[in-house]
Design a protein around this nucleic acid. Structure first.
Lengths: 119, 119
DNA sequence: TTAATATATTTGCGTAGACGAATATATCAG
DNA sequence: CTGATATATTCGTCTACGCAAATATATTAA
């Protein structure tokens, strides 16, 4: 049962859930966009991204001085199911929709330099 | 996002997941049946039951000197969804099926005195 | 009343992880 | 090379838990 409890542990922090919510919505985001969208410190985002990555939930891609994070493609049936369920559960949290609204406003107004030059 | 992260936190321990799995399967179980089915200390089960109860995931009913635990009926849409998803996720864990097999064998051979006199 | 049984709680210890502040590293611009 | 920018890591502190051993409480049996 440890695979499942480890998965839940990785999802048992509000900041990480908010990040996952944004990544599920946006596909790919750099740390500075996560920072400004969620109103968190850079250290805080970075720390949580390391946790998510260790848990196999996120993947990253370095482009110049930016690092773009995304939801990792599932490595097990368990992970696949968990992600599917996460999408569903997150919708029941009002904050998820609010975060996405903020993100969309930020995207519309250009986000950070990296996000615009992406690729 | 805190309701959801608290929920995940309550589910982020293997023993608690194994207990939830048994309760989902059996409906109601006393501490001593959980102990012997999972091969855990009484203290350990008791501690985790308190956690699950605090998180609103389990309910209890006292009968004589036994306490029967069950899955609490959900108090929010979030909890309802979470329980539905938990049923699904737990099936992907081999240990869940093994625990249930042990439980069934124990039920067939009579379980504890309380379980038999239940009601 | 006394003893046994089922469960809960306390105590003491160890570890994981959350946080902010400071610092390190890497990359790019000029 | 120099400075600015994006990200990561380290450090010190604090809290929540996990565990086992011991003890407490409640209920029933004899």
């Amino acid at each position: 049962m440890n695979d499942l409890s480890d998965l839940f542990k990785a999802l048992s922090d509000a900041t990480r859930l908010r990040v996952m919510n944004l990544l599920l919505e946006a596909g790919e985001l750099c740390v500075c966009d996560l920072e400004s969208t969620l109103g968190c410190t850079q250290t805080k985002i970075s720390r949580h991204m390391r946790y998510l990555k260790r848990a196999g939930l996120s993947a990253d891609r370095k482009v110049g001085r930016w690092v773009f994070y995304s939801v990792a493609s599932p490595k097990s049936e368990l992970q696949r199911l968990a992600l599917k369920n996460l999408r569903e559960l997150v919708k029941a949290e009002p904050r998820a929709a609010r975060d996405i609204a903020v993100l969309k406003r930020r995207i519309a107004s250009g986000c950070c330099v990296g996000t615009n030059q992406q690729q």
